[in-house]
């Protein structure tokens, strides 16, 4: 965490209806959204830990935990606690109160 992390911590849910240009728009958990079979949710906690609510093959949401850091860009680096899982990087396209826009980087 550092100064560029302002606006990033939070409990975020994918508002796919608002997506544009390959980027994913997230809203705070609890934000009114239409019912759905599933939405991605990620909790970026202020203490540097995260909970990634993934999509299970049986429609449950298995939770993957790890730690997140902010890198220049800014980018979010997700390092899973499970050593067998690869780290992931997300580009922060926009971070505003109540709205976070992320793009998956290869």
């Amino acid at each position: 965490m550092n100064a560029t992390a302002a606006g990033l911590p939070g409990d975020w849910v994918h508002a796919r209806e608002e997506d544009t240009g390959g980027a994913k728009v997230y809203r705070p958990w609890g934000h009114p959204l239409p019912p759905s079979r599933w939405r991605h949710r990620i909790e970026l906690r202020p203490d540097g830990s995260y909970v990634d609510h993934r999509l299970g093959a049986d429609d449950r949401s298995p939770r993957a935990r790890g730690h997140w850091t902010v890198e220049p860009g800014p980018r979010i680096r997700l390092r899973p606690d499970d050593q067998g899982e690869p780290a992931r990087t997300l580009e922060v396209v926009a971070a505003e109160p109540g709205r976070l826009v992320l793009k998956d980087l290869p």
């Binding site: 019912p35 759905s36 079979r37 599933w38 299970g56 093959a57 049986d58 429609d59 449950r60």
Partner: peptide, 9 residues
């Protein structure tokens, strides 16, 4: 909540 259903294989 929050989604619509789940199963067991």
């Amino acid at each position: 909540v929050p989604w619509l259903g789940y199963a067991q294989f």
